[in-house]
Design a protein around this nucleic acid. Sequence first.
DNA 1: CCAAAATATGCTAGTCAATTGCAAATACCT
DNA 2: AGGTATTTGCAATTGACTAGCATATTTTGG
Lengths: 142, 142
Amino acid sequence: MEAAEAGCPARKWSLVKTMYATTARRAVVDLLKGERRYLTASTIFALLKRDNPKLALSTVYRTLETLTELGSVSSRTEPSGEASFVYCNDEHHHHAICTVCGHVDEVDCAAMEQFRAALLANQSFTLDEHSVEFYGRCTRCR
Amino acid sequence: MEAAEAGCPARKWSLVKTMYATTARRAVVDLLKGERRYLTASTIFALLKRDNPKLALSTVYRTLETLTELGSVSSRTEPSGEASFVYCNDEHHHHAICTVCGHVDEVDCAAMEQFRAALLANQSFTLDEHSVEFYGRCTRCR
DNA sequence: CCAAAATATGCTAGTCAATTGCAAATACCT
DNA sequence: AGGTATTTGCAATTGACTAGCATATTTTGG
């Protein structure tokens, strides 16, 4: 069984030959940078279609795949099963998602260390990786 | 935005009128009880089809949906996007998944409390819910 | 600045997991 | 057993996502 990792992966520049800065890619990145919350491919497509009528949904999917490989975007799966995407900066972190406004903050992993220790002590389970998402209320919405 | 919860939800008996103990349902529950690891609907279908040739895949899907509502089954999403299911007992917990054998242990939430406190202290984020999966090596595989 | 090479896009058609409608079959209750 | 509520199997569909390929765009080298 494969070990999944929901935090942003380290950037994998080595896999990328050349990446053209196309208008479609710029549009997707700009939108995600501005929103800072998880959006599905079809939502992104609908939002960008207004200013770029000939944009194709498949281009959005391909762009999101590329950006995810680069580490500029992190994806998750909605309860419905749909994939959604958010812009992210750091190498590795987890997300704190506001249940009111949907705003996504990045959470550093430091606090996970003590949790790992507690888990090993209680259950003798060796923790290799973790996939974590937090739901709560951000500073503004509280 | 909706708050998802990947741990087993509290059982919702109130929503259920009557539930017939059919052979299909017994077969699915027995299989999942015996396996104790995440299986996809199509895998479950393939395994049960041998002893029950006229079983339909849609029945497996409907059964898994019912069992999930009852709280007897917990679901997650594989990296591929497919949904997978595991039998579970307790009201609320999280899963420690062995990366070697795939065995799923239930982790109680006690350790989350101190983590919640640390998160609030560091980032002033009010943690309401959490969705956690751990990957590591279980007692036997270590 | 222009043309060739490299890469990306749009479109269409496809794939595959998952859902739905409905008649037939099964489980429960008395 | 007989009647009713629920479930099943089957077939048709949905909906997210991917792939093939000709065209268009971006970069690079002259």
